[in-house]
Amino acid sequence: MTNRVLWGISISALVLAFIGILITITFEEPEIYNESETYVPKTRDVYLFTRVDENIEEEGLAIPPDMFSQDTIVVNQGDKVKIHFYNLEPVETQEHHTFTINDPAYNIHEDINAEENIVIEFTATKSGIFNYICTFHQPTMSGELVVLPVED
């Protein structure tokens, strides 16, 4: 081969090697988890309201039209949870609603009358999915508390 061809091949190899180095540097995966960092629990304020689904005809379907404003609450294990629970029913109705978790991990049952509110506080000590319900308005008034596990 001539010197020009060898020189061209050498330059091409150097350029490809340089591009390979740049790609490796540019696209190196970022560090996702730092072993020395630990999760610091937070206070999670959740606002939960009662509501009525106008599309449900209580008499015709024989189910209550009552629902929670959120059907999923997500927190991390170790978080302090503060659920601000509001019963928006008009006071004339005297209609009660509950926030109830029957699982022994949390065992919460709070009953409030129309136009009342309460703050329910607990620490999310156990991870998993826990159903919450209104004991008066099943099956429509229900949701899930999702407690995500935190790695040590």
Rank of each mutant, 00 (worst) to 15 (best):
Leu6Asn: 04
His97Asp: 05
Tyr132Asn: 00
Thr43Lys: 14
Ile56Cys: 11
Thr2Phe: 02
Gly143Ile: 11
Ser127His: 14
Glu95Asn: 10
Glu58Ile: 13
Val52Trp: 13
Glu29Lys: 15
Ser10His: 03
Val52Thr: 15
Leu16Gly: 02
Leu148Ile: 15
Thr50Ile: 06
Asp79Gly: 12
Glu116Asp: 10
Glu28Trp: 15
Glu57Thr: 10
Ile19Arg: 02
Gly20His: 00
Val75Gly: 07
Lys42His: 13
Gln94Asp: 10
Leu61Pro: 06
Leu14Lys: 00
Ile25Asp: 00
Val74Arg: 15
Tyr132Gln: 03
Met141Phe: 02
Ile9Asn: 01
Thr135Tyr: 09
Glu54Leu: 10
Tyr39Val: 10
Lys126Ile: 14
Asn102His: 06
Ile129Arg: 15
Pro104Trp: 07
Phe18Met: 01
Leu61His: 11
Leu145Ser: 13
Ser142Lys: 13
Phe99Met: 00
Ala13Gly: 06
Ser36Phe: 13
Phe99Leu: 01
Asn131Ile: 08
Asn113Val: 02
Leu14Asn: 02
Lys42Phe: 08
Phe130Cys: 08
Ser127Lys: 11
Pro90Met: 03
Ile21Asp: 00
Thr50Pro: 03
Glu29Asn: 13
Asn102Trp: 03
Pro65Thr: 09
Glu31Pro: 01
Ser12Arg: 00
Val81Asn: 08
Pro41Asp: 13
Ile112Arg: 06
Asn113Cys: 02
Met1Lys: 01
Glu110Gln: 12
Thr24Asp: 00
Thr72Val: 14
Glu116Tyr: 03
His137Tyr: 14
Ala17Gln: 00
Val75His: 10
Asp66Pro: 01
Ile112His: 04
Gly143Cys: 09
Ile83Phe: 02
Phe49Lys: 05
Ile23Thr: 04
Met67Gln: 15
Ile73His: 09
Phe130Ser: 04
Ile129Lys: 15
Asp53Ala: 11
Tyr86Lys: 02
Val40Tyr: 06
Ile83Cys: 01
Met67Glu: 15
Val46Leu: 05
Ile25Lys: 12
Gly60Leu: 15
Val40Gln: 14
Arg51Asn: 09
Asn55Met: 10
Ser10Val: 05
Ser10Lys: 05
Tyr47Arg: 02
Phe130Lys: 08
Arg51Cys: 07
Thr38Lys: 14
Val40Cys: 04
Val46Asn: 04
Asn34Trp: 07
Lys126Met: 11
Ile129Tyr: 09
Ser12Met: 05
Val5Trp: 01
Val81Cys: 10
